[in-house]
Simulated scan of single mutants.
Amino acid sequence: MRFLRVSRPDGPAFAALHADGQHAILVEGNPFREYTLTDRVAPLEKLTLLPPVLPSKVLCVGKNYRDHAAEMGGDVPAEPLIFSKPSTAVIGPGERIVLPELSEEVHHEAELAVVIGRICKSVPVEDAAEVVMGYLCANDVTARDLQRRDGQWTRSKGFDTFAPIGPWIDTDFDPSAGAAITCRVDGEERQRSTLDQMVFGVAELIAWCSAFATLLPGDVIMTGTPAGVGPITAGQTVEVEVEGLGTLSNPVVAAS
């Protein structure tokens, strides 16, 4: 099942992607708890898609692909390197990435993200799959110049609009199958790798994060980016695609 959030006259609502990939079936209830599919169907082109989930926190993993660690001039950490983005950084498919006036060098970072399905703490690796609601595409947008200047990553990765996620939550996706992950800017391929190149897998990351933080339904863990990160500028469009999962597309604009 692929769950979306859509804008409705009476407020945001969950929907499920129709088998034809062109329509959405409205959902009553909440897929994190109980829900039913209705008989109301609408074309995707007539819907405004929202972030598929509004997380209480976004936990991210640094240098989780060896080639990206190398291009950043460092070694792969012996343990997962975790940082966070505020929930206010989250935007959905089609929403604008806004380049802040404080930065002159903003980069794209294509990532797979996992959505937590229930409250959990100290999850063993072997039980990690039980707490997963599904997966989505993500872009860990980064002000690279501020990252270098600050010596830590909170500001450089935490601007509003710096956590695009979507286009939907796929509950059946298998991250262990080695799917391709790609980033394109205006159609030009910038990043390409496969998910089996991650140093720490999804189960390890869930175990690691839940060891220090209680994870809540809807929380998002971004799993790291492969090599090829680079600048984005106003007027461009960034696409993050995970094979078999979907494509997340966002235009880039200057701050007004």
Rank of each mutant, 00 (worst) to 15 (best):
E130P: 00
T36I: 14
P231W: 12
N139G: 09
E45W: 02
S7H: 08
L47N: 11
P164Q: 05
T194Y: 07
H108C: 01
F3M: 04
T142P: 10
M222Y: 08
N64S: 07
D140E: 09
F83G: 12
F173N: 12
G62V: 02
K121T: 09
I119W: 13
G94D: 13
E109H: 03
V131C: 00
R192G: 00
Q197K: 15
G224T: 10
D20C: 00
I82Q: 06
G73D: 10
T161E: 04
V90A: 11
G73K: 10
P77W: 02
A234G: 14
G235Q: 05
S84F: 11
D140Y: 00
A179S: 14
Q191W: 07
H107S: 04
V141Y: 06
L112N: 11
K121Q: 13
L99V: 10
A207W: 01
A138C: 10
E71G: 02
V202A: 05
S210Y: 04
N64H: 04
G21H: 10
F212P: 03
E109I: 00
T154G: 15
E105C: 02
A138H: 01
E130F: 00
L205D: 03
P124C: 06
C137K: 03
V132E: 06
V98M: 06
E105N: 10
N64V: 01
V132H: 05
F159N: 02
T142S: 14
G187V: 07
P217T: 15
S122K: 13
P9G: 08
S122R: 13
F162L: 06
A89C: 04
Q236V: 13
V202P: 00
A255M: 13
P124Y: 01
F32H: 12
A78F: 05
R33G: 00
R66D: 01
V61I: 14
H23L: 11
A70N: 08
L44V: 12
V242A: 06
E109R: 00
A69V: 11
S249C: 03
L216M: 15
P51F: 02
G187T: 05
A227K: 12
P12W: 09
G244N: 08
C60F: 07
P55F: 10
G21Y: 11
T88G: 09
G29C: 10
G218S: 08
R2Y: 03
A113N: 02
E243N: 04
E188D: 14
R190F: 03
L17W: 15
F200I: 06
A16C: 14
S103T: 12
M72T: 14
L37Y: 07
V6E: 03
D127T: 05
K63F: 08
K57V: 15
P77V: 03
C60L: 05
F83T: 07
A255F: 12
V41K: 04
A180C: 10
F3K: 07
G21A: 05
V220Q: 03
V199C: 01
L248K: 06
T161M: 00
E243S: 03
R33Y: 12
E95D: 15
P231C: 08
K85W: 03
V123D: 01
L26T: 00
C209W: 03
R144M: 11
R190Y: 04
W168D: 08
G11Q: 06
E45A: 15
V106Y: 03
D75R: 14
L50Q: 13
Y65G: 04
R33T: 13
E111H: 01
V220H: 06
A129S: 14
H18L: 10
P12T: 09
L195P: 12
D39M: 13
R155E: 11
G178N: 06
